[in-house]
């Protein structure tokens, strides 16, 4: 297991999974030029599910979640998010992007804006929320990620862990129904990983639908209800975490787990 064992007691009272489908991906394929990055992906995510996607680098896991909010374009198959099909129609893309929040490996905070402005930018310009209200929402989420006192600083003045928590708060300000995490802790120092993971666990406890690309197996064990292993652009194995870690079926999965867990 990861050295970062999750110590706290996790409250699962809100973590119910409804029958409603949040994301539906059917026979999706993607190519970069001639390179076949995603091969025949089929995935159904219920509302309230917490899915961890892992796999070796270059396996297409980041590309997969980036397809979900159209940061990458897929070439065949369907992606349906919240009942809206993702096509090149700008209206659909806008609708989906305002429902789906995303956190990046390198935070991507806007360096020219204060923390508060980072958080209010999208609500004001996309959701047309009055500034005062947007600031209240922002402060609410900043308190949630435990950095309300940094609201008037600039991103450059914050530590990596704090920046990533701001990035999470910034996404939450749009009140998304789905959150995507693209390796949120891999650019962080060990002591900062914990504060970010704690924030993510809290989010899970509130019943957020989450898709998370990460190598934090402790987090997967504690929070996820499904772990997906990808290699060579395809889903190799998926299972609920306990079974996934203790009884992997595929040879590739076994090899990957032995490397990452250091057994």
């Amino acid at each position: 297991m990861s050295e970062l064992a999750i110590e706290r007691q996790i409250d699962r009272s809100h973590m119910t999974i409804s029958d409603e489908v949040a994301i539906q991906i059917n026979n999706m394929n993607k190519w970069y030029g001639q390179f076949h990055v995603l091969r025949d992906i089929n995935l159904t995510v219920q509302r309230g599910e917490r899915i961890v996607i892992c796999g070796p680098s270059g396996s297409g896991k980041s590309t997969l979640i980036r397809c979900i909010n159209r940061l990458e374009e897929h070439q065949s198959g369907d992606i349906i998010v919240d009942g809206t099909e993702l096509t090149s129609d700008l209206k659909n893309i806008d609708k989906i992007r305002s429902e789906v929040g995303m956190c990046f490996q390198h935070f991507n905070l806007f360096p020219h804006l204060t923390i508060l402005e980072n958080c209010t930018l999208a609500p004001i310009w996309v959701r047309k929320v009055p500034r005062k209200e947007a600031e209240d929402i922002a402060m609410h989420y900043l308190e949630k990620v435990k950095i309300p006192d940094q609201a008037h600083k600039y991103p450059g003045m914050l530590s990596g862990g704090q920046q990533q928590r701001v990035a999470i708060a910034r996404s939450l300000c749009m009140k998304p129904r789905i959150m995507l995490f693209d390796e949120p802790t891999s650019a962080l120092d060990p002591e900062m990983i914990k504060e970010v993971l704690d924030t993510m666990i809290e989010l899970a406890e509130e019943g957020m639908t989450m898709l998370c690309v990460t190598h934090e197996m402790g987090f997967a064990q504690a929070v996820a209800n499904r772990v997906i292993f990808m290699d060579q652009g395809q889903i190799i194995e998926q299972n609920e975490p306990h079974a996934f870690f203790n009884d992997p079926q595929s040879d590739r999965t076994k090899l990957f787990l032995s490397q990452i867990l250091g057994h």
Partner: peptide, 18 residues
């Protein structure tokens, strides 16, 4: 301005012009 800035703005739902 790194590509991540555009992506982050897109992910928040901002249109290309904005």
């Amino acid at each position: 301005v790194s590509k991540g800035q555009t992506e982050a703005a897109f992910a928040l739902g901002l249109r290309p012009n904005r």
